[in-house]
Amino acid sequence: MSDGTGRPGGEVERPRGEDGDRSVDVRRRVEQIALGLMATSGVVVLLADLFGWLDALAPGGALPKVTLLILSTVTVFLLMELERLKKLDTVDDRVRHLGPDVQRKISDLEAGVDAQISTLTANVEAHLSKLDIDAIAQRLKRQHYGGVVQIHSRFPEDAFTGLLERAGDELVILQTWIPNLHHLRAALYKAITDQQVHVRILLLHPSSPVAGLRDEALRAVRDPALAVNVRASVEGCLAGLAELNTALTPENRTRLQVRLYNSLPSIAVFKIDERFLVSSFLHGQLAIDSTQIEIEGGDTVMGEEVQRELRTLWSIGTDVDLLDWRTSVAGISL
């Protein structure tokens, strides 16, 4: 009978590989039996030798024969395992061939990863180079603070001297007079002679009515014994600037300009290139003893306002000839 597949009805189809699995099982069973016989033979031979049975069974030649028997069994066992040992050689060959391939693939993978990392690093650096943190911070500072970078409790002479030593363009001073001129004169001389800086100074005319008003403002909350004579202070400042001018060569004297104004000053200013120190004329207190606002940037909101005030007072001021400042001041009409 047939089951419709062309095979006898009682025959069951074996799964693929079942015959191979059975042959492996048979061989393993034979190996186990052979190993068991070898182990048993060893024990039997040892016991027979101890009781003298070997000499009784085969006097003089039993032990070599037994040894030959065991060696023959081991040889048969090895012959049975020869095919499996050959497979080990095949595996070893495959491993050796696989080694270079794997190493090459690993090398290719490392090279690819390194290339991707390099590309990513280059992209990150390119984006970071466009993102100038300092410039952004500076721009935000200008937007939110109008250019103010620092506040000083009083005029910072050391900071001013440091800025003046790095100046490359001009120094502009707007004051009623410069109370600390004797501290700044050496720095002014160096800036004019060594750095070729153009110095412009605006002072209040000593005979201006504003001088009297400033006298009253300074005496408002101070002991009269500590009163400051504004007119005498302005004239003393002019005398100090005349001495500085005399120490300069004729060529360098052209870089020192002094003008007198007859107007109410709103602020006191020390401008070094694009850096400003700005204070107010408060009652009972000199401007250099008042709070100083440090501004960076002539294009900032506060920088533009300060420069506009400087231009206004410079335009209404009158030049003073420091070679004969008394005669020059006397000739200025108010």
Rank of each mutant, 00 (worst) to 15 (best):
L184K: 09
G20E: 13
G112V: 06
K141V: 00
A187L: 03
L163F: 12
N252H: 09
G331T: 00
G9F: 14
A242S: 15
G42W: 08
D158E: 12
G236I: 00
Q292I: 13
S333I: 06
V320L: 10
E83R: 11
D21E: 12
D223F: 15
L131S: 03
V278N: 01
L140C: 14
V26W: 08
S208D: 04
V234E: 09
P64W: 08
V269L: 06
H182F: 04
E235H: 07
Q103V: 03
G42D: 01
V30A: 11
E165P: 10
R311V: 06
H205W: 07
L260R: 04
R255T: 07
T291V: 07
R253M: 11
V269N: 04
D289V: 12
G146S: 05
R166Q: 12
A239I: 00
G162R: 07
S2E: 09
D108I: 00
D324E: 06
G6N: 09
I70F: 03
Y189A: 08
S263C: 03
V44S: 13
H183G: 02
L128C: 05
T291E: 09
E125Y: 04
D319E: 10
L88D: 09
E125C: 07
L313V: 08
Q103K: 05
L71V: 12
L46Y: 14
A227V: 00
L238W: 02
G147P: 11
G240W: 08
A34P: 01
D55P: 02
P59D: 04
W314C: 02
E13D: 11
V221E: 05
A220P: 08
E81W: 10
L213W: 06
P8S: 10
E304I: 04
L35E: 12
H144W: 11
R253Y: 11
V269M: 02
V149R: 10
L322H: 11
N229G: 14
Q143T: 09
E304G: 15
L79I: 02
R200W: 04
T327K: 14
G61M: 01
R7D: 12
A191S: 13
S263F: 15
D21I: 02
S266Q: 12
I151N: 04
A268N: 07
T254F: 08
V221W: 12
G331P: 05
R200G: 06
L188V: 07
T176L: 03
P179Y: 02
D321N: 13
H205V: 04
I136T: 04
A122L: 01
T176Y: 03
T73Q: 11
Y145L: 03
V66Q: 01
D3C: 10
P179K: 04
V197W: 02
I295V: 12
R29I: 08
D49V: 03
K141W: 13
V44A: 12
R311Y: 13
L238Q: 02
E165L: 15
L98E: 15
R214S: 02
R29D: 10
I117E: 15
T161L: 00
H97F: 15
N252C: 10
D324C: 08
I201K: 00
F77N: 06
D25K: 09
R16K: 09
E13F: 14
F51P: 07
H283Y: 12
D289L: 04
R185Y: 01
L244R: 02
L181F: 15
D108E: 13
R222K: 11
D132L: 05
R219M: 05
K141F: 05
D134G: 10
I332Q: 07
V149I: 13
V320W: 00
W177H: 07
E304R: 15
N180Q: 02
S315A: 14
L260Y: 04
P206Y: 14
